[in-house]
Design a protein around this nucleic acid. Structure first.
Length: 293
DNA sequence: GCGTCCAGGTCTACC
DNA sequence: GGTAGACCTGGACGC
């Protein structure tokens, strides 16, 4: 099964390497052929999807989804590549601030962020980035996918919730995060937590962020990072890496209070977090080098 | 080889 | 509301 989604101008590399998800399973990124592969649940099937730049947009091919309407696969591809984000207002703000080094964002059409096929997968991966090196995040996600044996796709909430805490600690190596992960997966699986509510565009940021923060294990960093993946960019989502990076980039290497960084990006308003993120990751897109150890 | 530090933090108890 | 201490893991670093 194949299809094309019109999205010109579109730079696949820019979206894929917008942050580290492409380095975590079930994603696979082949930089040489510029193709992104992943496994995703499409209705009740697990499909292997490959995405490549196509004529005037994105071409995709899927195995394992035979019998399903192509529109079901296309919907997953649109989500993963963040194709429905309206960045026109953001790019206008970047053009106005080209003298400060933000013009490239509008010129290259940057700002779409790689998403997982499901919000549950995004949330769990964010939780597994807290208080650890990237190598450990990669290890935990890899172990989780293989532990659940869910056709190679990222496990659904029920499958994670069914894992014994001991298995999460000793096999998946999530350590102290295990009870947080179990509680979150359990609430999603039982229906006590409806993640689709976090994706409702009409809801205020503060309300959604409050609900994310109410989940154990999701502190300020995790909540802001997940908000970014939800297309809500008012907050910066500072962490140890980005604090260091923005200090080098904008404050002559001098680390200061978070409030100073927030003031610097405040002119971008509801886009402040996206301007900040693209600012500190700009060099990832200049040379095409590997981002992660 | 061993000990320490710290990485894309968060929670709880306590003041 | 702010702060200290505990919490898992694994790689980097100094000795």
């Amino acid at each position: 099964m194949r299809g094309t989604i019109g999205a010109a101008p579109f730079d696949l590399d820019l979206v894929v390497r917008s942050h580290g998800w492409y380095d975590l399973p079930p994603f696979e990124w082949d930089a040489a052929s510029r193709s992104l592969s992943f496994r995703a649940r499409v209705d009740r099937a697990v499909a292997s999807v490959t995405v490549r730049p196509g004529n005037g947009g994105v071409g995709w091919a899927a195995r394992g989804a035979e019998g399903l309407p192509a529109s079901r696969v296309a919907r997953v591809v649109r989500r993963v590549l963040d194709l429905d984000a309206d960045l026109s207002g953001f790019h206008a703000a970047c053009r106005e601030r080209s003298a400060q080094g933000f013009g490239w964002i509008a010129e290259r059409g940057a700002g779409r962020l790689l998403k997982s096929p499901s919000l549950f997968e995004d949330a769990v991966k964010v939780l597994l980035t807290t208080n650890c090196s990237w190598a450990l995040t990669r290890s935990m996600v890899t172990n989780l996918v293989s532990s659940c044996r869910d056709g190679g796709a990222f496990p659904e909430a029920a499958a994670v919730a069914a894992l014994p805490e001991r298995s999460l600690r000793e096999e998946v190596r999530t350590g102290y995060r295990a009870p947080f992960l179990l509680a979150f997966a359990g609430r999603v699986a039982s229906g006590a937590l409806d993640l689709s509510r976090w994706e409702e565009a009409g809801r205020p940021d503060a309300e959604v962020e409050g609900e994310i923060r109410a989940e154990k294990g999701f502190g300020p960093y995790a909540a802001d990072t997940l908000m970014r993946l939800l297309g809500r960019h008012a907050r910066l989502g500072l962490d140890s890496w980005s604090r260091k990076k923005v200090a080098e980039l904008r404050f002559r290497g001098r680390k200061g209070k978070d409030a100073r960084v927030e003031r610097f990006y405040a002119p971008f308003g509801r886009w402040a977090g996206l301007a900040f993120w693209l600012d500190v990751t700009r060099d990832w897109h200049d040379g095409g080098e590997s981002l992660w150890p």
